[in-house]
Amino acid sequence: MLKRNRYMDRGTCLVWVFGDYADYFQNRVTLQLIAKGKALASELGTRVGVVVLGEDIGQYVMEYVAHGADVIYAADNNALKDYDVELFTAVAASWVEIFRPEIFLAGATAFGRELFPRIAKRLRTGLSADCVALEIDRETGAFVQTTPAFGGDLLADVVTPVMRPQMATVHPGIFRELPHDPFALAELIHPPLPNLPERKIEVVRRRKEKARRASLTDAGVVIVGGKGVGSRANFDKLFQLAELLGGEVGATRPAVNAGWAGEERLLGQTGKSVRPRLLITIGTSGALQYTAGIRGSETVIAVNRDHSAPIFGLADLGIVGDADRILSLLIEELNRRL
């Protein structure tokens, strides 16, 4: 049983988000979680707070405030300059024990996937990984975390009825961030640092991965190919189409397995989630594992030879036809018009 302390009453901020600012301005997942956290907090009658650890973190703190954070829990300290999972775990866990949030969220990034299981273990609480939906059950008040299960064949609703906080990592691109508000003000709290464990890893140097084109998760237009595209040559036409529309290319698991696209283009439960203004999905059947990653798209156009394919149930516009033929026609027409 948790003992109450005075900060539980003072810190009426029961929904927390971990600030993952690595590769900021490309990686928007923390902003997306702040928006979702704010909605959850509103339902719970509380506020959303963001935990920010590191050195010289001011600009990230301000970005989180501009995007909806009500409270910032910050440690701006040289000892936290370089990410170290043991140090970050120690700090986050100690702050949870002080302020006792109900919910604690992080992006399902490499960072979140490494850090959050350790924090959950330290706090002896549950963690739902790679969630694709988060809701408060209006009848029971339970925090329902929807996550792929059994290899992605099912979506499972998970609740953590007893232990706190209820922790979840969430796919980037599932939720929409709030607009930047330069007038925003937030509460800033610098909690004490616990005794930090000795750093076992020394960062010798950093090398940035070569910049890719626009991030798939941030693209306004996404063209997705599935097994029904038919061949590598046909799949390459998706890139032509994306180029013409200023978009990016995604792929379903069968297309990735066929070697037509790299793993970094995989969409769905085991890949990325996107919320573009326009998504054109070609030769995809509409399997649940895939559609979980595109459900936030504003307009969906589906192309499939099979008129009974489940993808048409999700599409705003459906085209029954051969992928190769439709792709060629689209490219030809766009080339003529642009």
């Binding site: 302390n5 301000m62 925003a184 509460e187 800033l188 004490p192």
Partner: peptide, 16 residues
């Protein structure tokens, strides 16, 4: 627990 410092922070401009 002592040592908690708190204040406000703006999204636009702050003094360190």
């Amino acid at each position: 627990m002592e040592g908690i410092r708190s204040g406000a922070v703006s999204a636009h401009h702050n003094y360190m």
